[in-house]
Simulated scan of single mutants.
Amino acid sequence: MFLAFDFGHKRIGVAVGDTLTGTARALPALRSSTQPDWPGIERLLTQWRPEALIVGLPLDEDGGEQDITTLARQFAEQLRRRSGLCVHLADERYSSRAADDALRDARASGRMKRRVRKGDRDGEAARVILEQWLAEQSIR
């Protein structure tokens, strides 16, 4: 079992998944306005008992770092120290675009009956990040 985080200035998307199925599902996003919701993260760690954590690393299209890349690295390091678990960084380029596409498809097909909420995109992006990471692990 793994937990993935899509770090953002306002919210942190979260997803859970495993290597058995190679799939993940989005969980409700956590707030992140002034600092991460550590009590919320600790509840997730207790509930899911992951073997490792994955944090999306926001890079620009050319693979260069942005201002938020540094913040995501700091979040990953804090997560490692607080949880005592191994934290993997995963390239998250295009995950938000893939999340938007998946949410749009879910609404159009009727799988998602309600309107898309702000945190939905963040959780869906975390799901994309985790499934890509799981796929890379199965190749190795």
Score class of each variant (00 low, 15 high):
Ala24Ser: 12
Gln78Cys: 10
Tyr94Leu: 14
Leu45Met: 02
Thr21Arg: 13
Asp67Gln: 14
Lys10Trp: 10
Leu27Gly: 09
Gly17Met: 09
Gly17Ala: 11
Arg49Ala: 11
Glu42Pro: 08
Arg93Val: 09
Ala26Trp: 05
Arg25Thr: 13
Leu30Thr: 03
Gly17Glu: 07
Ile54Thr: 09
Leu3Tyr: 10
Pro36Ile: 05
Asp6Pro: 03
Gly22Gln: 10
Ala15Lys: 09
Ala135Thr: 07
Ala52Asp: 14
Gln78Arg: 13
Ile129Gly: 06
Thr19Glu: 15
Ala76Phe: 01
Thr46Gly: 13
Ala108Cys: 09
Arg31His: 14
Val14His: 02
Gly119Met: 09
Arg107His: 08
Asp62Pro: 00
Gly13Tyr: 07
Ser96Leu: 03
Arg121His: 15
Asp62Tyr: 14
Ala106Val: 00
Lys10Cys: 03
Val87Phe: 05
Leu59Tyr: 00
Gly63Pro: 04
Gly22Leu: 04
Ala26Cys: 04
Leu20Arg: 15
Arg111Glu: 03
Phe5Asp: 00
Glu51Ile: 06
Leu3Cys: 10
Ala29Asn: 12
Gly22Glu: 04
Gly17Arg: 02
Asp18Phe: 05
Gly40Arg: 08
Gly8Thr: 14
Gln74Cys: 05
Leu59Ser: 00
Met112Arg: 07
Asp122Tyr: 02
Glu51Thr: 11
Ala29Lys: 06
Gly8Phe: 05
Asp122Pro: 07
Gly17Pro: 06
Ala126Glu: 10
Gly40Phe: 06
Val128Cys: 13
Gly8Ala: 13
Ile41Asn: 02
Cys86Met: 12
Ala24Gly: 12
Leu57Ile: 10
Glu42Gln: 12
Gly119Pro: 01
Tyr94Thr: 12
Met112Val: 00
Gly40Asp: 11
Arg31Met: 11
Pro36Leu: 10
Leu30Cys: 07
Met112Trp: 01
Glu131Thr: 02
Leu27Asp: 01
Glu42Arg: 13
Arg49Pro: 03
Leu57Met: 13
Asp120Leu: 09
Arg104Gln: 15
Ile68Asn: 05
Val116Asn: 09
Ile41Glu: 04
Ser83Gln: 07
Val116Asp: 05
Ser138Lys: 12
Leu45Glu: 01
Thr23Gln: 03
Glu136Asn: 09
Gly40Asn: 03
Glu131Pro: 00
Ile129Cys: 08
Gln74Val: 11
Gly8Lys: 10
Arg115Asn: 13
Arg11Asn: 14
Gln66Arg: 14
Tyr94Phe: 14
Ala135Ser: 12
Leu85Ile: 08
Gly63Tyr: 02
Phe75Gly: 03
Pro28Ile: 07
Thr69Asn: 04
Val16Leu: 01
Thr19Ser: 13
Ala90Ile: 04
Glu77Cys: 08
Glu77Pro: 01
Pro28Leu: 11
Ile41Thr: 08
Thr69Ser: 10
Leu57Trp: 06
Leu53Asn: 00
Lys113Pro: 01
Arg107Thr: 12
Leu30His: 01
Leu130Thr: 03
Ala106Lys: 00
Glu124Met: 15
Leu3Thr: 07
Leu59Phe: 02
Arg111Ser: 04
Leu134Cys: 01
Leu59Lys: 00
Arg25Leu: 09
Ser83Thr: 10
